[in-house]
Design a protein around this nucleic acid. Sequence first.
DNA 1: TTGCGTGCAAAGGTTTTGCATGGCA
DNA 2: TGCCATGCAAAACCTTTGCACGCAA
Lengths: 139, 139
Amino acid sequence: MDLKKQYITRQRRALLAFLSQRPEQLFSAEELMLALGQQGENVGLATVYRNLDKMVSQDMLARIIPSDGSGAKYEYLETRALPDSHYHMVCEECGRILHINCSRLAQLADHIESDHDFVLDSRRTILYGRCRQCAKKPQ
Amino acid sequence: MDLKKQYITRQRRALLAFLSQRPEQLFSAEELMLALGQQGENVGLATVYRNLDKMVSQDMLARIIPSDGSGAKYEYLETRALPDSHYHMVCEECGRILHINCSRLAQLADHIESDHDFVLDSRRTILYGRCRQCAKKPQ
DNA sequence: TTGCGTGCAAAGGTTTTGCATGGCA
DNA sequence: TGCCATGCAAAACCTTTGCACGCAA
C-alpha cells in the first residue's frame, strides 16, 4: 500500500507544510481547509479528508477522536521513528489536550506486551480523565 | 442532575435489562433497537439514544468510541462502585475488544494523578494496539 | 393531573463517494 | 501520455431536536 505511486500535489504539499509547522497542535478537517484558504491555498474539503486519511495510514499524522463526538482531529507526528514517544491526555470536562512523555508509560507498555499479549500503540491511545483545574471542581 | 424525577418506562426497563444481562458486550444504538424489536419490545431509535445518554451520565453504561469512526458503542458496567475496575484494549487490525484488569494500570493511574496532575478515567480510556494474533502477522 | 418520556420525521454535523476534469511524473 | 488527484455536489452515516401525544407516578 505504500508501494503505490503517489503524486506530490500542490494541495498535499500545502497540507503537510501547514501541519508540520505546527507539531502537537490538533486541527479538524474543516479547520485545515479554512486555514489553507486564508493562506491563498484553496483546497476542497474532500481533498483534505482524502489526504489526511493517507497521511494517517502512512503514520505521518495521528488521528485523535474526542469522546464528545465532535469529529476527528489531526496532529503532525515529528517522531516517526520513536514508537513510544508520547501519549495524549484529554480532559473530559474542558477538552484540553495534554501530552505526557513518561518512562512509567513505556514500562506499562512493556508489561502489557509481555504479560497480556497486546502491543500498545501510543499514537492512537488517548488517556481520558480530568486535568488539574477540572479535577478540583466539584462534580 | 441525578435529583431530577425520572420515570421507569417500558423502554428504559427493556434497554437496561438487555444490557445488564450482557456485561462486557458492546452494542451500537441501532443494534440495541433491533435486538429489542426482535424481543417484541419496539423502541424508537431516538428513545434508545436518549436513554443511553442518561445511563452513561449516571455511570450505568460506558460509551466506547472506536477509532475507525464507526459510531459509539455501549456496555453495561456492573462494577459501578469500583472506579479502576478495568480498561478496554481495542485491536486496530481485527477490531477485537479485550478487557484488562491489572494492578499495574491502577499503579500507573496513581502515578499520573500524583505526578502529572491528571485523574484518569478508566471507563472512557481505550488502549489501542494489536492483539496477540494480529501482532504476529507481518505489517 | 402533572410533566417527563416517547415516536416520528426533520434537521444537524461529519465524512464518504461518483464522476468529470485537472495535473504530476 | 497514463493515471492518480481534485473539486463539486450528492449521498451516506450517526446523532440530535421539535412537536404532539402517551403514560408513569
